[in-house]
Design a protein around this nucleic acid. Structure first.
Length: 501
RNA sequence: GGCCCCAUCGUUUAGCGGCCUAGGACACUGCCCUCUCACGGCAGCGGCGCGGGUUCGAAUCCCGCUGGGGUCACCA
């Protein structure tokens, strides 16, 4: 009777689709985790379904409140909103598993009453010993030997002071399902033993609470990482039991998203800084860029366009188009995508997003002064198309927010200078001193005439020393624009200082 | 080891039996533009893991092999 999978899979489509994102609050948010959230979000938005956000904090050892806050911060920074769950509520509250213990107790009672759970007294060491004695490989794990323990034996164990874990009696038939991204997958009968769902101390495990909550919350499509693929038949077995116990009426559909790989050919490690979402934010990724790149990890908008917005993604996204191949997290490509999105920002938007990064780089005060904001307004457009991540702004713009006394000449800038650099600077100083119309165009015309036409210098040699004199660097934002922003007095001060050095 | 997943340029991806002389993007190289660096434009480099089938025809379908990855907890 409990020997076959008889429960039906969900047939929900369109608005009836319910997906969820259910992270465990351990550590800082991982880019793979965010990708999972993104795909679930996009599928819900695409279908008009519901996106549920639940927290799986049933591991008191590893869960932390800090991590919980970070996950929420990550989602809101990225602009991934949810319809039901943490902070927004819904018909299935609470949405933190640590607050749902009574619910699990009830589910366990129903499952027990329907005969799907049984008490298991053997410890891990005893299970290993039994395997050894029977000549079975240890990796085979539990041998299902307590399925039909008689009361006398149980009493004996109890008298020894043991308390039993609860295991699910799994069907001994093949278990098949149609994976949304991989197609038909079958696990042969006997692929896994009866597994523990409740600890001897009464604490329910992930193996129980994840499917129970999905069932109770009416989740129709489970989109999750490939690492959970091999636990899917176990969960289907549990769903089947839950249907028979009257807890739910269907098994959700499953789709397993490809791994996000790191350097080499390994799953991107939690210890790798590239896996840390906030590391990328700190470098100056903007949400638009990061989300776009993350979407490319297993999905694409079309054959010849890989730059798109969240809205475009939502409009086009379908799990069936997800590629099963593991995808490497390629920072260079991510940077390029981010740079493209930065260039697409309006000038004001771009300038505003720069502020926190410039403050972190000690370029701007907190809050910025009106004078600083005025300079920023003029300077930001000069670097918008030369920047990959916002964190680069401090280095490129710093010289515009300081004064001549703070300008240090970089070593590589000094090395690239021509022999007659000081002559050139002196000639420029003389010419500029007499200039009243201190604007980009006038500066360009004047210096071009004096240095290139009259002195016969190549443009590169003519303007390089000036660039270095005012910025201290070999490369800088456009020279004449920079001079205009600095103003005549400051520009001359820097040129004179350079000539004397 | 058992079980499961995966397999197109360096990376990512298009391709779902003839439109493929295998397309795009990132990276790389060269040229152009140019006050540096970028941006932009043009050009180039570079790939169907191997072996069998099926078919008039296979990157596309089937089988095997090889390779890679994951999973086998009283973690999630």
């Amino acid at each position: 009777m409990t020997n076959q999978i008889t429960a039906p899979f969900s047939t929900a489509t369109g608005k009836d689709i319910r997906v969820r994102f259910c992270p465990s609050p351990t550590g800082t948010p991982h880019v793979g985790l965010v990708r999972t959230a993104l795909f679930n979000w996009a599928y819900a938005r695409h279908t008009g379904g519901t996106f549920i956000f639940r927290i799986e904090d049933t591991d008191q050892e590893r869960d932390s409140e800090e991590s919980y806050e970070q996950i929420i911060e990550a989602l809101s920074w990225l602009g991934l909103d949810w319809d039901e769950g943490i902070n927004v509520g819904g018909p299935n509250e609470p949405y933190r598993q640590s607050q749902r213990m009574d619910i699990y107790k009830e589910a366990v009672e129903k499952l027990k009453a329907a005969g799907h759970l049984y008490e298991s007294f053997l410890t891990g060491e005893e299970i290993d010993a039994r395997n050894e004695a029977a000549g079975r490989a240890k990796q085979l794990g539990y041998d299902n030997s307590e399925r039909d323990l008689d009361q006398a034996t149980k009493d004996k164990y109890l008298a020894e002071g043991r308390s039993p874990a609860l295991r699910l009696r799994v069907p001994d038939s093949d278990i098949s399902f149609t994976d949304l991204v991989r197609g038909e997958i079958t696990f042969p009968a006997g692929s896994f033993p009866d597994f523990v769902v409740v600890r001897p101390n009464g604490h329910p495990l992930y193996t129980l609470v994840n499917p129970v909550d999905d069932a109770l919350m009416g989740v129709t499509h489970v989109l999750r990482g490939e690492d959970l693929l091999s636990s899917t038949p176990r969960q289907i077995a549990l769903y089947n039991a839950m249907v028979q116990a009257g807890i739910t009426t269907f098994i959700p559909q499953f789709g397993h998203l490809p791994y996000v790989m790191g350097e080499g050919h390994k799953k991107l490690s939690k210890r790798d800084p590239e896996s840390n979402l906030f590391h990328h934010r700190d470098r100056g990724f903007i949400p638009e860029g990061l989300l776009n790149y993350l979407a490319l990890l297993g999905w694409g908008l079309s054959a010849d366009q890989d730059i798109f917005t969240l809205q475009e993604m939502a409009k086009a996204f379908d799990v069936h188009d997800v590629n099963p191949n593991p995808a490497r997290f390629d920072l260079k490509k991510a940077d390029a995508i981010n740079a493209t999105h930065i260039r697409a920002l309006s000038a004001d938007d771009f300038a505003n997003r720069l502020i926190p990064y410039l403050q972190k780089g000690d370029v701007l005060s907190t809050p910025p002064t009106p004078a600083q904001l005025e300079i920023l307004g003029k300077a930001a457009p000069l670097i918008q198309e030369r920047i990959t991540v916002l964190g680069e702004a401090s280095g490129m713009l710093g010289f515009l927010f300081t004064d001549s006394s703070k300008i240090a000449i970089d070593e590589d800038a000094r090395k690239g200078l021509p022999e007659n650099a000081k002559q050139i600077v002196a000639a420029a100083t003389a010419a500029i001193s007499a200039l009243d119309d201190f604007t980009t165009d006038a500066l360009h015309d004047l210096l071009n005439k004096v240095l290139v036409e009259d002195m016969g210098e190549k443009p590169k040699n003519a303007f390089g020393p000036l660039r270095t004199a005012i910025s201290g660097r070999r490369v800088s934002p456009p020279l004449f624009e920079s001079m205009e922003i600095l103003g005549k007095a400051e520009t001359l001060a820097r040129l004179e200082l350079f000539a004397r050095s």
